[in-house]
Design a protein around this nucleic acid. Structure first.
Length: 406
RNA sequence: GAGGCGUUGGUGUAGCGGCAAGCACAACAGGUUGUGGACCUGUUAGCGGGGGUUCGAUUCCCCUACGUCUCC
């Protein structure tokens, strides 16, 4: 039975950046690492072969969505998330907390049905909400979330947390944090209980790793309190958290506030545990969060922006405002025979022109979404790989300067 | 040759005596951070031409151009 583990092999002298390896039952993740988000057991428009080719090391699935459709029992019958989707690498699932708490806040921002998540009631015990698919009532509790995630069988699962909206008053942020802490303990107990059941082990054939989640919104004392609390739970040996995720960021606050939260939290976390930052980031964020000691991070930006025609490009190639991307829909690209970006070895940049991609997007051809997602995922994974090498060569600061101060 | 109908931004249309001439798509410019092939926000841009009636015409009348249909 393969075990979960984290080994740090190198630490940057001038920052908190570090190089490591996360071992999972389904492979090793070289950190720092980006994980694309594949909500419904699919990184939209990309198949597992594409994911490998784009240097993807780990797949991130959503408990909320997979619970509603097709349901964790179905996924379990197929042998878990990875087998279900034909992916042989490491996987991680979130707890469903973010969807239930945070997406509900965004309701007014979009009329899309996918986001019409009806939050019904939050109690000490958990959350009652309505399915965005058929309006049926559902309840998530820490125990339920863990049970669902057990059935989904990802290598890494997350504790069920309460993500406060932004902005949140100090009182609300504290309430959400306290609840997140109570739920963290319940998640650990619940997982331990299930682990002791031989039946469960037989089904899974491996122990899942679990990450606790730090909350606290934009308040320094709350963030620090949460970091200590969750960090302590990661020090309780085999019964504790295997890693720490920082949540409640990139929910509407400024980049400065987001980075401050990371700065407050990271130094208080156990050095030897992997740190995941939830939902970040954009190209510039990636440098900033790795510099502040983040090991892994997931983000929808590469695929979401890709699907609407924003393609990542190197420094100086984008607009003044958005330096690292071009909007391929713009008519200026219609006759452009250059690749999306220079110095990119991905399949898309090696074989297609900006003009062709512009045509695919204008014509709404399905291929547009795949090629754009493919390029963006490759671009980010390749960038993070370059950052890993730069850290090892003592050139991280130099590389950061070349990218961000260009 | 005779008669009918039509002509409003790039496209398709609404308005029918007093409007800042409305809407949709397209175009242009922004936005998107534990998913959103969505959506939102702006901006540009129009009454075929010429006469008349009227205090006032995109609107009513005449001529003309173009389109379309029917008949000879």
């Amino acid at each position: 039975m393969s075990k979960f583990g984290f080994d740090i092999s190198f630490k940057d002298k001038s920052s908190r950046a570090r190089i490591g390896k996360i071992s999972t039952p389904h492979g090793v993740i070289e950190t720092p690492a980006f994980t694309p988000v594949g909500t419904q057991a699919s990184v939209k428009s990309l198949d597992p072969k594409d994911l490998k080719e784009t240097k993807t090391q780990i797949f991130f699935g959503n408990t909320y969505h997979l619970h509603l459709r097709p349901g964790e029992e179905v996924v379990k019958k197929f042998g878990g998330l990875a087998k279900f989707m034909g992916w042989d690498g490491p996987t991680i699932t979130d707890s469903g907390g973010f969807q239930v708490f945070s997406l509900a806040q965004k309701k007014g921002r979009s009329r899309n049905q996918e986001e019409e998540i009806n939050l019904v009631k939050i109690t000490e015990d958990g959350v009652v909400f309505r399915s965005h698919i058929d309006g049926s009532l559902h309840e998530f509790t820490p125990e339920k979330s863990i049970e669902i995630q057990k059935n989904l069988s990802a290598d890494i699962i997350l504790a069920f947390d309460q993500c406060p909206p932004y902005p949140a008053s100090y009182e609300d942020a504290k309430k959400a944090m306290d609840r997140t802490h109570e739920w963290a303990v319940r998640c650990l107990n619940s997982k331990l209980k299930a682990q002791k059941s031989k039946l469960q082990l037989k089904i899974q054939n491996f122990n899942q790793a679990i990450y606790g989640i730090v909350q606290g919104s934009v308040y320094e004392d709350l963030r620090k309190e949460s970091a200590k609390f969750i960090g302590d739970l990661a020090l309780s040996g085999v019964e504790g958290f295997d890693g720490i995720a920082i949540g409640g960021v990139a929910v509407g606050e400024s980049k400065v506030e987001m980075l401050r939260a990371v700065e407050w939290v990271v130094p208080l976390l156990p050095e030897e545990k992997p740190r995941h930052l939830l939902g970040v980031g954009e190209v510039d964020d990636i440098f900033e969060i790795i510099e502040r000691g983040i090991d892994t991070f997931d983000c929808v930006i590469p695929t979401r922006l890709g699907r609407t025609g924003f393609l990542f490009v190197g420094p100086k190639e984008g607009n003044i405002k958005n330096r690292f991307r071009i909007d391929i829909n713009k008519s200026v690209f219609a006759k452009d025979q250059e690749p999306v970006t220079k110095n990119c070895n991905c399949y898309v940049c090696q074989n297609f022109t900006r003009g062709y991609l512009n045509h695919l997007f204008i014509g709404r051809e399905l291929l547009a979404y795949r090629l754009a997602s493919y390029h963006n995922i490759y671009f980010i994974n390749d960038l993070v790989e370059k950052i890993r090498n730069a850290i090892l060569n003592g050139e991280f600061k130099k590389m950061k300067r070349e990218w961000l101060e260009a």
